[in-house]
Design a protein around this nucleic acid. Structure first.
Length: 191
DNA sequence: CGCTTTTGACCAGCGC
DNA sequence: GCGCTGGTCAAAAGCG
């Protein structure tokens, strides 16, 4: 995996972007989630960033859907180890994309839309449509660069994604490379 | 018909 | 207590 601190189109921002994923199989989201404990004051909030190709494209065989599946799988493991409840987990993505809502393999029902003071762009609220699943996600455009979408997942799915079931996806934990960069908070006041 | 989206209203937390 | 803000509810409308 190749990580740059500030991409060529992002010189003026303090944000970090993963400009290129050389080997998608190494893109293990849970690693960033765990490492984030060392960076965040609020350890329940995990953040990461990605480029659009990582989530919306299919050329490298790695999609947002797979990312979500891996997140869910690995968070479940951590939930047991750390004895945290599902609702305590929050994961934030900053993704460069023209699409506000990307297909992550789960079905979501929009239940609210709110313009927030911290951003000129409205924030959309979604709940997982699966019965009994309390996972929520918030989607909003980055106030500093509207070409980026900030997606925040809250909670852990109590079910596999429809995509996961359909594909009988079994390879969930590929080897993790030793040098995979460090997660950087999206912004000091990100919530 | 069932599900999703829209959107104004409502509620809770927080600072003053 | 009051106002502000973010999050949620719920009725109505839309869509396949």
């Amino acid at each position: 995996m190749f990580v740059t601190m500030n991409g060529p189109e992002d010189h003026n921002h303090s944000h970090t972007c993963f400009e290129e994923i050389v080997d998608p199989s190494y893109f293990e989201l849970s690693d960033y989630l765990l490492l984030e404990d060392d960076f965040e004051e609020d350890s329940s909030v995990k953040t990461m960033a990605s480029s659009a190709e990582d989530f919306t494209g299919s050329s490298n065989g790695f999609t947002c859907r797979e990312a979500s599946e891996r997140i869910n799988s690995n968070i479940r493991c951590e939930s047991g180890r750390k004895s945290k409840t599902a609702t305590e987990f929050r994961v934030a993505f900053r993704t460069k994309s023209e699409l506000e809502v990307m297909d992550d393999g789960f079905r979501w029902r929009k239940y609210g839309k709110k313009s927030v003071k911290s951003s000129p762009n409205p924030r959309n609220y979604y709940k997982c449509s699966s019965e009994g699943c309390l996972v929520k996600k918030r989607v909003e455009r980055d106030s500093e660069d509207s070409s980026y979408v900030i997606t925040t997942y809250e909670g852990v799915h109590n079910h596999e994604s429809p995509c996961f079931v359909n594909r009988n996806y079994k390879q969930m934990s590929p080897a993790v490379p030793p040098n995979r960069g460090s997660p950087i908070p999206l912004s000091p006041n990100f919530s």
